[in-house]
Write a protein that binds this DNA or RNA. Structure first.
Lengths: 102, 102
DNA sequence: TAGGTATTTAGAAAAAAATCTAAATACCTA
DNA sequence: TAGGTATTTAGATTTTTTTCTAAATACCTA
């Protein structure tokens, strides 16, 4: 996907918490859902947003779907954000700007 | 403010474009508004979101209000994002996690 | 195969965000 | 002070997002 989806995905507190949960390792959809006070359907919706933003990926196993962090996309976000800080990398920032064209 | 406001503010393409415009230096509300195909009132709404997220600040001068980037908040976002990458700084990440409690 | 568990999809309802128009505020200058 | 320019605020409307319930899908095991 692209930056619009990524930032949209990060804008929700529930989704940011899911990402934090996944730092320790992969979790099934059910494990994730049981941490929140909302229906499984709603959590599934949030997982879909994170998946569409390439922030997580899924692996099916038996009767379960496990979700894991996709760390590579975070590197791209890091780069986008760093263009607004003092210690930025000029070349990489140019690449980011090109790829943001929406 | 805090992370919720910050990520919410970054989730909108118009607001991200405003931030990009401000990289070159401060601009008045009118200068910013004239770059978009929307009313000044709407742009003012977006500027307010960015201001509430501490991503920009304003300085009043004569009849104008100038907006500028507040780079320090970007450093915090950088830190938050870096907890999901490989080359993270453990101590700083702990601090970030503490301050995200919502 | 039949029934069960895990998860998603569809569609509707509720909540939040973005946008507009009109009016208000603030400050400047002749 | 009167009129003008720059910008914001208020309130209503439209659009988008989040959430729910109910049903569908998928796969597993007895």
């Amino acid at each position: 996907m692209g930056f619009p989806e990524t930032f949209k995905a990060l804008s929700d507190p529930v989704r940011r918490e899911i990402l934090s949960m996944l730092k320790k390792g992969r979790l099934s959809a059910g494990d994730i859902a049981s941490h929140f006070d909302m229906t499984g359907a709603t959590v599934s919706y949030h997982l879909k947003q994170l998946k569409n933003a390439d922030l997580i990926y899924e692996t099916k196993e038996k009767n379960f779907i496990y979700y894991s962090l996709n760390t590579s996309v975070f590197e791209e976000i890091l780069l986008w954000v760093s263009q607004f800080t003092s210690d930025k990398n000029e070349k990489e920032v140019q690449d980011i700007e090109k790829s943001e064209e929406e």
